[in-house]
Design a protein around this nucleic acid. Structure first.
Length: 509
RNA sequence: CGGGGCGUGGCGCAGCCCGGUAGCGCACCUGCUUUGGGAGCAGGGGGCCGCUGGUUCAAAUCCAGUCGCCCCGACCA
């Protein structure tokens, strides 16, 4: 798969990473000025090393002394704060409230739901000692909070008048994974988990469906990352759920990344924790549940969707710092003039919107490179010449385009430009997704191509056996059954049995 | 758990084969000159060479253990 990808100002290109995987690049070539990105592996040379380099050089995160854990640095945490702020608003606008449940969960709680314990037991960290003594009952560090939350809901729910409960929490969780990757899969990670309780199956279903669409909207509007929303296969669903909905994104190397999930838990947890309510007709019934979450993995998704060989590219809506001024001077007089004008221009601006990089110890070129690697959406160069002409040079991170703008009314033009950048990032990513999603009929064709990345729309009979075979033979999985997949009769790509709609299959992170 | 790589000033590495008491680049500090794409020169500070044991007059170097980290695969958001 090496379909051309149009970009804004430079030519389309696509290349291989030397292991046969196509690197699908929707961003820009390095601009004039030679090799900019010191110490960043090119995507074409080694995509996964590129990702690590970008995360570290962009100061998003750093490795911690404990294997599999990471420190989220201010640049990365700033993105997370923006994700939180915007998502949190969307949750509250849909009627949810925040609460906080404890991190330590009695081990016995985890065991109450059979499928749940089976799914999570292997990856739980367990506290056995505390206060210098062996604990009577070990405490599990939450891998997710369903059990502790439902143990509490039991106390809070008596009547249909107590329902629905629409609680979200922002928290850390711990899952002992075999292999970790910065942001994408770490031992401890930050996330939000919504846990709702409803009187009926239909209400819980409506909630589950609604929240996956909140995620889709958020991913597309804020992360500028197009996603495919759909339903997971039974094999891929959450441990303890009736079914799981998800959003799936495509990274620049064509691999799929699950970016958010929403589970319809049915009455499984209500039964496990004996949570019943009395309805209007005086019947005692088990409560229906949903849970849904996104994590700091979104930051990894963001990076792998937009960043380039020069470093991070952060969408304006989530950038901790949207605009940076790099003043240029040759002597103290010029320094005074240039800084004076910069401060004058920005006098009534929101201080969180911009920064004037007046550090003395670095030359402008150094600063350009630094802010570039950190993914700041807009850099403004302001020097003596600009001051004379009452203008500034504005450079956008996504295309490297330099635009001269008058000092007068600058903020208005910048806001417009930030919107353009946001839209452009989405459009480039959307085009990549569209052009690298293709119908596939024959298994031979699939096997021959799937290694190169991209999404494949295939017919699947729905049998577990075919799904297992696909995974076994191609190291790819059925990512989801898209909500918008049209009814279409066909035959299963693997076994030839009838199928009524296509599913998305791909190699995934 | 398998495969690969690596542990030497803050970071990246050389030195190890052929033992002789540690070096380079970046970063850092001081000063001067510089400043529109990662500045130059001069001077300076900083390392029980991952850990333990062994061989030896002498170990970063040889031997035996051991611990840790990263990358690639099997599980997962």
């Amino acid at each position: 798969m090496s379909l051309p990808v149009p970009v804004c100002t430079s030519g389309p290109f696509s290349w291989s990473d030397g292991r046969g995987r196509a690197i699908i690049v929707g961003s820009l070539t390095p601009h004039s000025g030679g090799s900019m990105a010191k110490g960043i592996t090119k995507r074409s040379d080694d995509y996964s090393q590129w990702y690590i380099d970008v995360v570290l050089k962009g100061e998003m995160a750093d490795y911690s002394p404990v294997k599999g854990c990471m420190v989220i640095r201010p640049n990365g945490y700033g993105v997370w704060e923006n994700i939180q702020r915007n998502l949190d608003r969307m949750f509250k606008e849909t009627g949810h409230v925040n609460a906080y449940f404890p991190m330590l969960i009695p081990e016995s709680f985890l065991k109450k739901e059979a499928e749940h314990v089976e799914g999570f037991a292997p990856e739980c960290a367990v506290v056995t000692h505390a206060g210098g003594k062996l604990l009577e009952e070990p405490l599990v560090i939450r891998p997710t909070s369903e059990t502790i939350i439902w143990a509490m809901y039991k106390n809070w729910i008596n009547s249909y008048r107590d329902l629905p409960i629409l609680i979200n929490q922002w928290a850390n969780v711990c899952r002992w994974e075999m292999r970790t990757r910065l942001f994408l899969r770490t031992t401890e990670f930050l996330w939000q988990e919504g846990h709702t309780a409803h009187a009926t199956h239909e209400e819980a279903e409506e909630e589950t469906y609604k929240m996956v669409h909140v995620y889709k909207t958020f991913a597309e509007e804020y992360l500028a990352m197009p996603v495919i929303a759909g339903k997971k296969t039974d094999q891929e669903k959450f441990a303890g759920a009736l079914h799981t909905y998800c959003i799936e994104a495509m990274m620049q190397d064509g691999r799929a990344l699950q970016a958010g999930t929403s589970h319809h838990l049915g009455q499984n947890f209500a039964k496990a924790f004996d949570v019943k309510f009395q309805d209007a007709e005086k019947n005692l019934t088990y409560v229906h549940a949903s849970s849904w979450g996104v994590s700091t993995r979104l930051i990894g998704a963001l990076i792998m969707t937009h960043s380039d060989d020069n470093g991070l590219v952060i969408p304006p809506k989530l950038a901790p710092l949207p605009v940076v001024f790099v003043p240029i001077w040759r002597n103290d007089d010029e320094k005074a003039t240039v800084l004076g004008r910069a401060r004058e221009i920005t006098a009534d601006w929101d201080p969180l919107f911009f920064k004037i990089d007046d550090r003395d110890q670095y030359k402008p070129g150094y600063k350009f490179a630094e802010w570039e690697v950190k993914g700041i959406p807009i850099r403004i160069e302001i020097g003596p010449r600009d001051c004379q002409n009452n203008e500034v040079v504005v450079v956008r991170r996504d295309t490297s385009e330099k635009i001269t703008m008058p000092m007068n009314g600058l903020i208005t033009n910048l806001r417009k430009l930030l919107e353009d950048i946001q839209a452009n990032l989405f459009n480039v990513a959307k085009h990549r997704l569209d052009t690298h999603t293709r119908d596939c009929v024959s298994y031979e064709e699939y096997v021959a191509n799937v290694e190169e990345g991209g999404f494949y729309r295939i017919h699947w009979c729905g049998d577990r056996a075919c799904e297992d075979r696909l995974k076994e033979e191609t190291r790819s999985t059925i990512r989801c059954i898209p909500f918008d997949a049209p009814e279409e009769s066909g035959v299963c790509m693997l076994c030839g049995k009838p199928s009524s709609r296509r599913v998305i299959a791909a190699q995934a992170y």
